[in-house]
Design a protein around this nucleic acid. Structure first.
Lengths: 219, 219, 219, 219
DNA sequence: GATGAATGAGGATTCATTCAT
DNA sequence: TATGAATGAATCCTCATTCAT
């Protein structure tokens, strides 16, 4: 096949430069998302200004809008990336073998990576808090929340197969709420205090869930 | 009562007008706080504009600033008044006789009025959420929070006299966090769901606190 | 009536200041409208910026928005005021006695004040041109246009009672179109040229309308 | 034709690529102009963004600026091409034999193709409206306008050889203005209404011009 | 006290245009 | 040539706060 190499050469001439441009674009997107993460952490989503994000990223406002149509799109994309990174990094927490373990171990297996991830990616947390308006959650927050909720419901269902859907929803919401408020405390402290709040979180969940679970899973 | 008219007459020339002014001032403050409560509920603290509050109160922005130096002061005052009203309405929940009762009853005695109060005064709730900025709690939120925290610590201390201050703080923060996130769910639902979440909250707290408590208060 | 003066005094204490404030507000509105008229004339409605209007009025952007909710409202108000001023100044052009006169005199009686008004208030003209987008006329332009159209239809109807509504509409639209395009020429020139275009306009309309009219009004 | 291949071969080594480049360039220009026509029609000239034109053409903004120095140049070129196409398609309307015909026939001969052209090429119309700024016509509008004006003056001159240049200019401007405003109405309607406005336009022009003309041309 | 006009920096977003690749 | 990222001033509009009356 003598023609193939030539074709390859031709293509390279046309795609080498675009590829580098694309790379630059992706770098910018990462830059902007990182900047957004920082700003969201410091000020929360609602108070974060696109100009501030652009400034933090070292670019002009116009550049930001070349990659994101508006402020919410930044949050959505950032939330999505963080979620995906969470899955990749700590997705094994929800693997079936974990679900077979006794509750205390499962809590460790699930919560420790989740907490670690949030400590390393505090922007994730900032996004989950949303606008502060009680009723009106914005879209990305809603997506994040319902995504987590679904996962929790899944785990709970495997633990309490006899629970009604309504019960599952109630319990999942409670668990998620407890987790979120504890995470507030965990992220707001360091060192021993952080450890202590982590332990308390596990205690709360263990004592809350154990009665629902043990009867169901005596091997 | 012969003194009363005289006293009134005597002071009227010099203080009647000031007194009326003061009365009018207090009415204005109440007006403004009520308006602020409404606006905070509808839009959250961060998105509430002072102009909107003034408009809702039927006064001009300048008048608002005659009674409050800035937006946060409104929130602080409103939070304080709501807290005080909570004390007056449901303060007996923390009376000594309640503290002697077994934990389940105490949870009922404490939580039911608290929940009822929040259902009736959703502004209280809006204020507790603060600006949505995770770390940077603003003053009014902080005051409200630490006020509640102190009370919870007090109750816990009477239950677990042997707990260290650090343990008390940790547990109180957890309890408060659990309460707040549950209240989110409670306020976001109605009817049976609201009841269910209320029950869940009590369950969580009961199971969390019982092991710390019962051993201590056997007599 | 001894009480009346007192009452008057009391009232004056409360309303003298507000009255002056209100006067200031109205002055600002006039100022802003005048500024808007200038800017609209120079740049057209679409390209006129609210900041430019505020600057021309010597106030800050915020002040502008204290009196007008948005850019279009300025145009609507300005258009309305100009229209009203036109009615007051030259409204007698449409009086019945005018409608009885022969067509050439009627054209003079109607067009001369109309043209004079537009020469003195070129902003009126700028507003009528709208956004430049063929189909999408904006509201105020539409209102102005249909207002004028109705008047023209009225006059035409008194001249050609036998014309069908469709004919009236067509003719009125033509007349209005001819008037508008001629006014462009009139306003774009001065002195003798302006006179010439005014004469041409009358010629065009006279020759266009005469055949429709004379047969109907011989007595 | 033996020479043709030879010529082609000879020049191919040195000029084939440039020629192809040029051809590609012209294709690009056409692409861009077509896109501009579409955008101008939909949004008007002022509101048309160069980015939108580039996007519609399927190229990048940079490419657009490789062929046109700025937005106005696009309009100028588009107007020119449309004008030329108008000439090519309907240029025979201005041929000498038409000019000899009586006015009614001449109006038909001139206006019908002109109207048809504008119905088929609404971009032409969008361009003629310019920016909406009364006085400040921009270059392209001015060029289009003066081009048309010259033609109208030519025709009028052949009809009224005795008219002074000033008279010619005045009348031509009036005719053009009437034509433009009528075209607005024609393009804004369809079916019977469109026909009606077309007829009205001819009526207006006929009655306006006839008195100037008939005396001059009795063969 | 009360008013409401006034401020002006800052919010999100757009867009004609340029530049490095 | 072609790309698309980059710019930055300009857009409309908001809002906490102040000031003259």
């Amino acid at each position: 096949m003598p023609g193939t190499p030539t074709g390859k050469t031709t293509e390279s001439a046309e795609t080498a430069t675009p590829r580098r441009r694309q790379a630059r674009g992706e770098r910018r997107v990462s830059q902007l998302l990182a900047a957004a993460a920082g700003v969201f952490c410091r000020t929360g989503y609602a108070a974060a200004s696109t100009n501030a994000i652009a400034r933090e990223a070292g670019v002009s406002p116009g550049t930001l809008y070349q990659f994101f149509p508006n402020k919410e799109a930044i949050a959505v994309e950032l939330g999505g990336q963080l979620l995906q990174r969470a899955h990749e990094t700590h997705g094994q927490a929800f693997l079936p073998e974990n679900l077979q373990r006794p509750l205390p171990e499962l809590l460790d297996a699930v919560l420790d990576p989740l907490i670690a991830f949030n400590c390393e990616n505090p922007a994730f947390w900032a996004l989950m808090h949303g606008s502060g308006i009680p009723g009106a959650v914005n879209q990305e927050h809603e997506e994040l929340h319902s995504g987590l909720l679904t996962r929790v419901e899944g785990v709970l269902h495997s633990f309490c197969p006899q629970a009604t859907p309504a019960e599952l929803t109630h319990t999942s919401n409670m668990v998620l709420g407890i987790f979120k408020s504890s995470l507030d405390l965990i992220l707001a402290h360091e060192g021993a205090d952080r450890e202590a709040y982590t332990a308390e979180l596990k205690t709360v969940l263990l004592r809350y869930l154990e009665p629902m679970v043990t009867t169901t899973r005596s091997p």
